[in-house]
Amino acid sequence: PKDEAKKKVKEAIKRGDEETAKRIAKKYNLDWDDAKREADEER
């Protein structure tokens, strides 16, 4: 599900692992900028 994928993307971003985050986002066709902004807001 997309929500689960987005959570994984945000967790990867918070760990500083943007490569993984981008790969997950691409795989699930998520909006990378959107997920990154959300992760930054939660930090």
Score class of each variant (00 low, 15 high):
Pro1Thr: 14
Pro1Phe: 14
Pro1Glu: 15
Pro1Ala: 14
Pro1Tyr: 13
Lys2Arg: 14
Lys2Met: 14
Asp3Trp: 13
Asp3His: 11
Glu4Tyr: 15
Glu4Met: 12
Glu4Asp: 12
Glu4Thr: 09
Glu4Ala: 12
Lys6Asp: 02
Lys6Tyr: 15
Lys6Val: 10
Lys6Thr: 06
Lys7His: 09
Lys8Tyr: 12
Val9Ile: 14
Val9Gly: 00
Lys10Gly: 04
Lys10Ile: 15
Glu11His: 05
Ala12Gln: 02
Ala12Asp: 00
Ala12Pro: 00
Ala12Lys: 02
Ile13Leu: 14
Lys14Ala: 12
Lys14Gly: 07
Lys14Ile: 13
Arg15Asp: 05
Arg15Ile: 06
Gly16Ile: 01
Gly16Pro: 00
Gly16Val: 02
Asp17Met: 04
Glu18Phe: 15
Glu18Tyr: 15
Glu19Gln: 09
Glu19Lys: 10
Glu19Gly: 06
Thr20Gln: 10
Ala21Gly: 04
Lys22Thr: 03
Lys22Asn: 02
Lys22Asp: 01
Ile24Arg: 01
Ile24Gly: 00
Ala25Asp: 00
Ala25Glu: 00
Ala25His: 00
Lys26Asn: 07
Lys26Met: 13
Lys27Trp: 11
Lys27Asp: 10
Lys27Ile: 12
Lys27Gln: 14
Tyr28Ile: 04
Tyr28Glu: 07
Tyr28Asp: 06
Tyr28Asn: 07
Tyr28Thr: 01
Asn29Trp: 03
Asn29Ala: 09
Asn29Arg: 04
Asn29Thr: 03
Asn29Glu: 06
Asn29Asp: 09
Leu30Gly: 00
Leu30Glu: 00
Leu30Trp: 04
Asp31Trp: 02
Asp31Ile: 05
Asp31His: 04
Trp32Leu: 08
Trp32Gln: 01
Asp33Leu: 10
Asp33Lys: 06
Asp34Ser: 10
Asp34Met: 12
Asp34Ala: 13
Asp34Pro: 02
Asp34Thr: 13
Asp34Arg: 07
Ala35Met: 15
Ala35Trp: 05
Arg37Ser: 07
Arg37Phe: 07
Arg37Ala: 11
Arg37Lys: 11
Arg37Thr: 06
Glu38Arg: 03
Glu38Asn: 05
Ala39Met: 08
Ala39Lys: 03
Ala39Trp: 09
Ala39Asn: 04
Asp40Leu: 13
Asp40Lys: 06
Asp40Gln: 10
Asp40Thr: 10
Asp40Tyr: 13
Glu41Met: 13
Glu41Phe: 11
Glu41Ser: 11
Glu41Leu: 13
Glu41Pro: 05
Glu42Ile: 06
Glu42Gly: 07
Arg43Val: 13
Arg43Tyr: 12
Arg43Asp: 12
